[in-house]
Design a protein around this nucleic acid. Sequence first.
DNA 1: CTTGGTGCAAAAACTTTGCAAGAAT
DNA 2: ATTCTTGCAAAGTTTTTGCACCAAG
Lengths: 138, 138
Amino acid sequence: METHDLRNAGLKVTLPRVKILQILENQATDRHLTAEQVYKILLSEDEEIGLATVYRVLTQFEAAGLVTRHHFEGGNSVFELSDGDHHDHIMCVKCGKVDEFSDNVIEAQQKQIAQRLGYELTAHGLYLYGFCPDCRKP
Amino acid sequence: METHDLRNAGLKVTLPRVKILQILENQATDRHLTAEQVYKILLSEDEEIGLATVYRVLTQFEAAGLVTRHHFEGGNSVFELSDGDHHDHIMCVKCGKVDEFSDNVIEAQQKQIAQRLGYELTAHGLYLYGFCPDCRKP
DNA sequence: CTTGGTGCAAAAACTTTGCAAGAAT
DNA sequence: ATTCTTGCAAAGTTTTTGCACCAAG
């Protein structure tokens, strides 16, 4: 139930928030959406929700830990429903598809590197870019 | 000599380009600058070079392989003089300092992951974020 | 009721572009 | 002389904010 997640996050249960949460949950093919994409989906469902609200809601969700914001190459932000586990991303430079993966070896190396350099790690992101299977030249 | 690098890149040797290249070369503490920062340094040296030109020149340098553009968290681009070798970055979330590192184990894992997922890798970036030694709480 | 959320429009931040004037080869 | 560059201002993108109105608790 979205209602519960929102209450938990200290956010009032409003139509825009519920709708946006549902949209994020219903992404089967690619869990990563820009604010603009969320907005267009809302429009296509005849919801009268402003783009500014989409940004506000997504930012609140991020603060509440419900979603994660990523900065892929190209500059604009994409949002993804948090699922507890950390994972990294590989993005197709042609079609924009995003796949996820996680790798314990890499995670361990990262911690080690941060320690060696004297940093206290707070976040990390690994982004690979390339041609996905469908977009590779034959 | 900057002149040589520019000629090599097929770019005319002009004062803005030479100046900007010098600025990038002279970064002792942090090799990573935003366009705005480069612009401010130019101003502080009494150079009459427009911000638009800074962006244009940096973009040309990027196309020529002279500099690399990164998208750190926060959205804006930072530029760094290319040095041939690939390396990754760790950034202080408090003071903005950027350190570099490279790790063969991680590089190898990345290739393996891409292969497993069927991607043909074109680029990759690993970004760690945390408190640098100077900014850690005591 | 009271507090917080929404929509709209306007602003902000960052980056790109059109164009006439100027510089490099 | 020709071609490429520059500076400025204007426009483009993406994201944030101010404010009056509306809705949730």
